[in-house]
Amino acid sequence: MVLTKQKVFRFTFTHFFAILSSVMFIVTVILTFKLLTNDHCNCPRKETVIQYVAKPKHYINKGYESNHRLAVLVPYRNRFEELMEFAPYVHDFLNEQKINHDIFILNQVDNYRFNRASLINVGYLETKSNYDYIAMHDVDLLPLNKNLSYTYPYQPFHIAAPHLHPRYHYNKFIGGILLINRGHFGLVNGLSNKYWGWGLEDDEFYVRLKDANLNITRPDNISTGMNDTFKHIHSKDRKRDTVKCFNQREVTRRRDRQTGLHDVNYKILSYKSMTIGSAPLTVINIQLICDRSITPWCNCSEDKTDKRKS
């Protein structure tokens, strides 16, 4: 077979064009990938940034000389205004004390009544492998006195003591802000899971601590008092869920020896990494699961007989 000059030229040009096209394709892919993996936008950053993540991200301040890590556990539902004030304030407060800490917002996303105790149980189980102690911390209570210490507690340490809290002053009160180390919280099997709605879960936890012969300590040498030690940012128009239905009133006034860390029933729907001002947070979206044969008052709308206020 005899190849003419015209055929040779056509064959060479075709192969050259094919090679050139392949090279251009490879270069285009490389440049596109590079552009996608580099942020060239100088757009202004918003103060609040939310990023979805698969697992909680830990923001421990590794520069602080401390052998103990604190997980601040904040039971939460629909309190965004309070959270916007709480997060940067508490983060800065703890940084001033050089406390190695992370803040976890325990966001209840199911349709049951709010269950503060179960949310804290979940928060403990999700963080205990990385933290030495927890702060059971209300989102609407801010410490004002710089001498209120968040250091590691060798005994349960009730920061929001009755003689300092702006609203609750009875001796057995341990709500608001309580520090407890990992070992002691596990020892008492966490909190009861029977407290759907507002109130009494802290009183039951007080009995658990006493039954375990743990000594509840409180701040001393604090010069401020009930009116200027804490800032309570709970809005007056926000109603508490104090309804009692079924046999809730009777059951929740007794020591619970059945429920706790070992049987809290829940699903983690997602984690979110979130920053408010200077404060990095981990939001854990939690779906609590109610066993209506044990606590039918997780949903009082089904009870038609008794919805009295406590």
Score class of each variant (00 low, 15 high):
residue 306 D to K: 15
residue 153 P to I: 04
residue 163 H to M: 02
residue 21 S to Y: 14
residue 241 D to I: 13
residue 179 L to P: 02
residue 56 P to Q: 05
residue 164 L to W: 03
residue 111 N to P: 06
residue 60 I to P: 02
residue 156 P to K: 06
residue 93 F to A: 00
residue 202 D to Q: 07
residue 251 V to I: 15
residue 233 I to A: 00
residue 111 N to W: 13
residue 41 C to D: 00
residue 269 L to T: 15
residue 82 E to I: 05
residue 174 I to V: 09
residue 78 N to D: 07
residue 81 E to Q: 06
residue 296 P to M: 13
residue 267 K to S: 07
residue 214 L to Y: 06
residue 63 G to N: 15
residue 25 F to W: 12
residue 283 V to L: 06
residue 152 Y to F: 13
residue 119 L to A: 04
residue 59 Y to K: 11
residue 210 K to R: 14
residue 81 E to M: 03
residue 129 S to L: 11
residue 197 G to C: 12
residue 119 L to T: 05
residue 17 F to A: 11
residue 301 S to H: 13
residue 34 K to Q: 03
residue 245 C to V: 08
residue 284 I to A: 07
residue 131 Y to I: 14
residue 5 K to T: 11
residue 24 M to S: 09
residue 82 E to W: 08
residue 22 S to H: 14
residue 290 C to Q: 12
residue 270 S to G: 09
residue 81 E to G: 00
residue 202 D to A: 02
residue 130 N to V: 12
residue 14 T to Q: 11
residue 203 D to T: 14
residue 215 N to P: 00
residue 163 H to F: 07
residue 149 S to E: 01
residue 308 R to I: 13
residue 16 F to I: 14
residue 25 F to Y: 14
residue 300 C to Y: 14
residue 84 M to C: 01
residue 146 K to N: 10
residue 187 L to W: 04
residue 60 I to K: 09
residue 271 Y to P: 04
residue 8 V to L: 14
residue 45 R to C: 01
residue 173 F to A: 00
residue 273 S to F: 08
residue 186 G to Y: 11
residue 144 L to C: 02
residue 174 I to S: 00
residue 167 R to D: 03
residue 289 I to H: 12
residue 263 D to Y: 11
residue 122 V to N: 03
residue 260 G to V: 09
residue 29 V to Y: 10
residue 85 E to A: 01
residue 214 L to C: 04
residue 76 Y to D: 00
residue 273 S to K: 13
residue 238 R to H: 08
residue 7 K to Y: 05
residue 152 Y to P: 05
residue 37 T to P: 00
residue 299 N to C: 12
residue 179 L to E: 01
residue 74 V to S: 01
residue 154 Y to L: 05
residue 179 L to H: 05
residue 139 V to N: 01
residue 217 T to Y: 00
residue 162 P to W: 02
residue 246 F to R: 13
residue 10 R to L: 09
residue 195 Y to R: 11
residue 300 C to E: 05
residue 162 P to E: 00
residue 43 C to K: 12
residue 61 N to E: 08
residue 141 L to T: 09
residue 142 L to V: 02
residue 59 Y to N: 10
residue 215 N to W: 04
residue 168 Y to A: 03
residue 161 A to Q: 02
residue 204 E to D: 13
residue 213 N to K: 15
residue 212 A to D: 02
residue 273 S to I: 10
residue 69 R to E: 06
residue 110 D to R: 14
residue 217 T to L: 03
residue 208 R to V: 10
residue 241 D to W: 15
residue 192 S to M: 06
residue 286 I to H: 02
residue 143 P to Y: 03
residue 267 K to T: 13
residue 162 P to H: 04
residue 287 Q to C: 10
residue 261 L to V: 10
residue 299 N to Q: 15
residue 140 D to T: 05
residue 241 D to K: 15
residue 105 I to W: 05
residue 73 L to V: 06
residue 99 I to F: 01
residue 184 H to L: 07
